[in-house]
Design a protein around this nucleic acid. Structure first.
Lengths: 191, 191
DNA sequence: TCTCCAGGAATGAACATTCATTCCATATTA
DNA sequence: TAATATGGAATGAATGTTCATTCCTGGAGA
């Protein structure tokens, strides 16, 4: 197994175990075992458990942005772009429930708070299609003139809530329901 | 200090510390110290840390329902009742940020998942104004005919998201913004 | 009124367990 | 053979829980 392969095995094992059992329910020894690696080996790839957790998050964030931007046409009307992002996000979460659950764990922890602060206030240099779209919609007076944070709450809040309930089996979400909820989110933010 | 007083001291200490540092960041020894009791004393009131966590949750849940039902008039139109519950919930969260943060911790943990399963599928005998209102609205064809879980996502998702951002200081939510977000939630669920 | 005692409540040091991290003998590679 | 990577036992810190001991209170007896 090559060096990157091993690294990926560790990340995958951490993803699976942390998604299921949480940060504190996934000891390094367990991650090592699932990855088929010695406990000490992890420390040759990641300085500490904290670093592992954060690098895994960055990996997932990059993946998700890639997935969502596929087939995203900047030229479309605001409403169409909004609905595209909604359904793309939901489809991604449903297809990769482990990743969704990991991201949930991350966001509902001190890591997530720090990350959120940076995202909202820091000069994050990388592009952020969600933010850009909202700003465009507000400028065009198509979307309610509310603080960005409120619009995010109205948009992302319902989607993650629904994704969680679907993944936990509390509701069976199909394409039709995804579409309906996406349109309801649009009703929430549009003027 | 009476027995119930001491019990309440322990619950309050647990609330404060767990809200701030999380379940795993609030050792029993720390909770005992803040409550002004010996470590062992906690176990005279609560069988284990798990039990303490769950009893505290039930306490908070009861308090919140009380708070929200105050001034809730069954006779009002669906839309008015909806807006009342929105703003009452937000006001409660803003007034008691510790309780909100505790509830967030709880819901984003295995405890919360179990609780949610029971709530949605169990024969919960106690009344549930949110659920009743949604069902009434759907029956009257005022609210979108979507699964209950989806309507909850559209309703509660944004409110908790906004409350979190407000409590963490990412946005300053005043009565006006509360009202606007409540109405946006209504736009999301209404037909 | 004062003294003493019984029984329950409170205590916190001690214990067993769990965890992240380190270390070094062994295996692998060049 | 030399250099590097690996595995997993060893380590020490931290945690939930226990339990032998101390403390407190309220009533009985003188």
């Amino acid at each position: 197994m090559s060096k990157t392969e091993k690294r990926n095995e560790i990340l995958q094992a951490a993803l699976e175990l942390i998604a299921e059992f949480g940060f504190h329910g996934a000891p390094m020894a367990m991650i090592a075992e699932r990855a088929g690696v010695g406990a000490g080996t992890i420390y040759r790839h990641f300085e500490s458990k904290d670093v592992l957790i954060q690098e895994l998050f960055r990996d997932l964030e990059a993946r998700i942005l890639d997935h969502i931007q596929a087939g995203y046409d900047e030229g479309l009307p605001v409403r169409e772009k909004f609905l595209h992002l909604c359904t793309a996000l939901l489809r991604y979460f449903f297809s990769f429930p482990l990743e969704f659950r990991y991201l949930e764990q991350f966001h509902n922890s001190p890591y997530g708070r720090d990350y959120r602060r940076d995202k909202l206030f820091g000069d994050s240099s990388n592009r952020h299609p969600f933010k850009e779209l909202l700003e465009q919609g507000v400028a065009l007076q198509i979307i309610k003139d509310l603080p960005l944070v409120a619009l995010f709450a109205l948009w992302i809040g319902p989607l993650t809530s629904l994704a969680r309930d679907n993944i936990f089996g509390f509701v069976q979400v199909d394409d039709m329901l995804s579409r309906q909820v996406a349109e309801a989110c649009w009703d929430a933010v549009r003027r």
